[in-house]
Design a protein around this nucleic acid. Structure first.
Length: 943
DNA sequence: CAGTGAGCGAGCTTCCGCTTGACTT
């Protein structure tokens, strides 16, 4: 029975897919009686943060995680804020339907979405799980006719993955906040991605280049040449007296030959001498070797290969590629762009083959359709390969597309068509040429050529190369037609120097490729992984290269030393294996999570899924690792030796180099530019930084003292200071401290003048004296401009008043009673009535951390979703009640922690916390200022 | 990482995978 006739019997079916574009297409294949709507991805997830945790769990110790780790890892699910409306819509549609088809993708995530839909929609009508891997009329109708049941085990596997990622991310990130810098993050995918980039940079740092030389000879045949038979050939020296001449690949990363006995390492003198000795020699062809050449087309695109090719050929970043592809998909030009499959549907194969015949002729069409085995190990193959949509491919010209969309479509179209074409065939030839030098040595040269006799798929498409010097596959190199024994004359022999190069940095595309090979990340996340590690400041881009920051060195260092198992390159792959076992019902989620979180021994049997460094039999759980952080020495993990006693440290405000102990003689310290590539930090460069700390502007000389005046960017923002002459004691009894002063808010490092600086450094200014003769001064401080009379200080409204205020005005200010604190000075923003518990009046006030409600005893900051204008008294009471409930619990926790930690450390932490708040707003500025400085320096150099 | 003078409410940051708009620059 066909689905349409079934429908005719009455009843309406609701089909839910993941993507709206897919819904639109499928609608057309199912006809009337079917309502097709999209879930638009996941509809529920673990709560993002405290704000999303349902009230009833708020007090729980695990609420922060959204997973009850004490009760079999029971997850808390909330409908995503941006999906509430869609869920409502689906509920409405379901109410009018007699049957529900859950047609989400057939992979782990899709199965989970189907389950969440069922949980949230609570259907009272029959529910079917419907699956398909290609969007063609036949496939869809077959799918609707053959539904199956929801696979709860697969859902379990997805949930386990979700919980693991949450525990990893939300437990390890706070360790970084405490030990390195706030707002950092760690995760199963991003941390390994970062580690890959860091390790590559370490290789570059450890790399020493080797120099080697060889000869290039141009040999003439003595015949007049033409295009099919050139008159000469260019060959490289390959061996001398039977010993192979060393090439780049013969050298190790240490710059030394891997096997010195096997090869001959030519240096410049040697090479030049040999070239001279060969000048008069006669040469002959020693051998000609011809081999058939054959090359098969590349598989159709999947997400990663599309990103790579778009990067190589169109210069698109991963994100741009996906955005353009999304548009093509939405407008029906291509199939789904987030896929790990290279499989083409029968329809697609038919369309491609038809087009091959039409455009290139039957000679280019293989007898049988080509199939491409999945290369990706953990592929879930829920979709087809990326290809032009439809059962007849539109040529790029027919699409009417323009710009980037046209170019990307053309790429996809060509690749798809080429994938159904014949192999390219031809010949590759190697010619060896020998000659004896005047000093008796025998030299052998070699040249290789390639001719293509049948271009096959290359007629349509040739893959790009990452290395700009690499030859593309369809490139021919024709050699003259020579035979063994033919005499040749050396027209020119030159000695060429080469140097081995360190491994290249990752690009977006090559990092994504590497991640895919290691089974890390999914098609929908590859582009955003790059985004995450860029956002966190772990890497930055230099051209197309991804350069790791020093910050990432510190983070990776910490993770490797203390969470080794978690950043193991095989962690995800082994997780995938375990998840597959859970999906097959061979393993259980809860014991697996228990081992991961609580450690080996918390569960009796089974394979370890533990988190830390595997020492012996006991494998520690993640919880143990993040609870006791005493073993993590923040200073040690953030320190990297540069050489000669110089250490690079990653501080809260960025990287800096340091030499000697603090406060000791000869101690030096200098900021390192944020965008310095780690492999460029040498001892020499550090010395340069010490000599002239970055971000320093010379303003001129103080005519009074003769001291140079400079402007710098400091911990508390930009300031000016004087350079004391050398030999001025900086420590001890006779220490002289340089005069310093913060810039006014109205000034900037770029524009501040010597006059400004001298004026600032003249502060405090004496305004006058009061009736009792006590001096009143005006100055600039931590909280802005203020007046000071003995110990009595008063804030001023503007910086200009420091220089402008008269004694009269100052006395008037002192005549007023002292305003204690800004908060007290401000009237409440809003009154909310009387709190039912404390029976005190509740008001909204504006404070340091933004608006908050208070009843005079308990204070609670408004949450992200609250608004001063719209907040109700009830919400105010609720916030206060929450705070009262939470307050004591937090205090005891803090106390306990303080007791454990050494007193000194606690103090240091407090200061750090304070600074963070103050510095928050200035950080961005500081970075910006730094960058300008660096640019200026570069410009100065260029001049 | 410069070195000055208050008195005050912390709460939140963070993961990986599915999906698109709705926003602002």
């Amino acid at each position: 029975m066909s689905p349409t006739s079934e429908t005719a019997q009455g009843g309406r079916r609701l089909v839910i897919v993941e993507s709206p574009a897919k819904a639109k297409t499928i609608k057309g294949y199912l006809g009337p009686g079917y309502v097709v709507e999209a879930s638009v991805g996941h509809i529920r997830d673990l709560p993002n943060g405290a704000a999303e945790v349902p009230a009833k769990y708020k007090g729980e110790p695990w609420a922060r995680l959204g997973v009850n780790v004490d009760a079999d890892f029971q997850p808390v699910y909330v409908v995503n804020a941006d999906k509430k409306e869609q869920v409502k819509k689906l509920k409405g549609l379901l109410a009018e339907s007699d049957e529900l088809f859950l047609a989400t993708d057939e992979d782990r995530e899709g199965e989970a979405i189907a389950w969440h839909l069922q949980e949230v929609l609570k259907p009272k009508v029959p529910v079917r799980r419907m699956v398909f891997h290609e969007i063609t009329k036949d496939a869809i109708q077959a799918a609707v006719a053959n539904p199956r049941e929801l696979n709860k085990k697969l859902v379990d596997a997805q949930e386990t993955r979700r919980i693991l990622d949450r525990l990893y991310g939300y437990e390890v990130s706070p360790v970084l906040w405490k030990k390195v810098m706030p707002r950092l993050s760690a995760g199963r995918v991003q941390s390994v991605a970062t580690r890959l980039v860091v390790e590559r940079e370490r290789e570059r740092i450890a790399f020493s280049s080797a120099e080697y030389w060889d000869l290039t000879g141009t040999f003439g045949t003595g015949r007049g040449g033409d295009t099919s038979d050139p008159a000469s050939l260019v060959a490289r020296l390959t061996s001398v007296d039977g010993r192979r001449v060393a090439q780049g690949r013969d050298f190790g990363a240490n710059g030394r030959l891997k096997d010195a006995a096997q090869v001959l390492h030519l240096d410049e003198a040697n090479a030049r001498a040999l070239a001279a000795a060969l000048e008069q020699s006669s040469f002959a062809v020693r051998s000609v070797e011809s081999k058939p050449y054959r090359r098969s087309p590349y598989a159709p695109f999947r997400t990663t290969t599309l990103q790579q090719e778009a990067s190589r050929k169109l210069g698109f970043g991963a994100k741009a590629t996906m955005q353009v592809a999304q548009k093509l998909y939405e407008n029906g030009f291509i199939t789904y762009m987030r896929t790990d499959s290279t499989t083409l549907s029968d329809t697609a194969v038919g369309a491609a083959r038809a087009q091959v015949t039409q455009l290139y002729g039957a000679d280019y069409l293989p007898e049988k359709p080509r199939t491409y085995a999945g290369k990706v190990k953990n592929a879930q193959e829920a979709h087809e390969a990326i290809r032009p949509s439809g059962d007849r491919f539109r040529t790029p010209a027919e699409t009417g597309l323009t710009g980037d969309q046209f170019r990307l479509y053309e790429l996809i179209w060509k690749r798809t068509v080429a994938s159904q074409m014949k192999d390219a065939v031809g010949n590759s030839v190697t010619v060896r040429i020998a000659g004896r030098a005047s000093d008796g040595r025998e030299a052998e040269f070699s040249a290789s050529g390639k001719t293509i006799t049948f271009h096959g798929f290359m007629k349509a498409y040739v893959e790009g190369a990452d290395d700009p010097n690499a030859e593309l596959d369809d490139r021919e190199r024709r050699l003259p037609q020579v035979a063994e024994g033919d005499a040749l004359t050396a027209e020119e022999i030159t000695a060429d120097g080469h140097a081995t190069k360190p491994p290249a940095r990752y690009t977006e595309a090559s990092l994504v490729k590497e991640l895919e090979e290691r089974e890390i990340g999914r098609p929908s996340t590859y582009a955003s992984i790059i985004g995450t590690i860029l956002d966190r400041g772990y890497v930055f881009k230099k051209g197309t290269a991804l350069v790791p920051s020093f910050l990432s060195f510190a983070v990776v260092n910490l993770l490797e030393k203390h969470f080794g198992r978690l950043v193991d390159y095989d962690f995800t792959a082994s997780m995938e294996e375990d998840l597959d076992r859970i999906a097959r019902g061979e393993a259980q989620a809860v014991p697996w999570l228990r081992r991961f979180y609580f450690g080996e021994g918390s569960e009796d049997s089974g394979k370890a899924a533990a988190a830390g460094n595997g020492d012996g039999d006991h494998l520690g759980g993640l919880k143990e690792l993040v609870t006791d952080l005493g073993a993590i020495d923040a200073r040690e993990i953030s320190s990297f030796p540069v050489g000669e006693g110089i250490v690079l440290r990653v501080g809260r405000y960025g990287p800096y180099v340091e030499r000697g102990e603090k406060d000791s003689e000869g101690h030096q310290r200098a900021d390192v530019p944020d965008d310095l590539a780690p492999d460029e930090l040498t001892v020499e460069y550090a010395e340069e930084l010490f000599a002239k700390p970055s971000g320093e502007y010379e303003l001129g000389t103080d005519p009074q003292s003769g001291h140079a005046i400079i402007a710098k960017d400091g911990r508390y923002g930009p300031y000016v200071t004087e350079v004391l002459p050398e030999g001025t004691p900086k420590t001890g009894k006779n220490a002289v401290k340089p005069r310093t002063a913060s810039l006014f808010k109205s000034m900037s490092l770029d524009t501040v003048t010597l006059d400004d600086a001298l004026k600032l450094m003249s502060l405090p200014r004496v305004v006058g004296a009061d009736a009792e003769g006590v001096e009143i001064t005006a100055q600039n401080g931590r909280y802005g401009p203020y007046l000071k009379k003995g110990t009595d200080s008063r804030s001023l409204e503007s910086e200009d008043q420091i220089f402008g205020i008269t004694l009269e005005e100052a006395l008037a200010i002192y005549a007023q009673p002292k305003q204690r604190g800004r908060a007290a000075a401000k009237p409440p923003l809003k009154e909310l009535g009387t709190d039912p518990v404390s029976e005190r009046p509740v008001v909204v006030k504006d404070g340091r951390f933004g608006p908050y409600v208070t009843d005079g005893e308990t204070n609670a900051t408004l949450r992200r979703d609250d608004d001063v204008e719209t907040i109700t008294p009830e919400r105010g009471y609720e916030l206060l009640a929450e705070k009262r409930a939470k307050g004591p619990a937090k205090k005891t926790a803090k106390k306990a922690a303080a007791k454990k930690a050494p007193a000194k450390k606690t103090a240091a932490k407090k200061t750090a916390a304070k600074k963070t708040t103050a510095a928050k707003t200035t950080t961005a500025k500081k970075t910006a200022a730094k960058k300008t400085t660096a640019k200026k320096a570069a410009a100065a150099k260029a001049e």
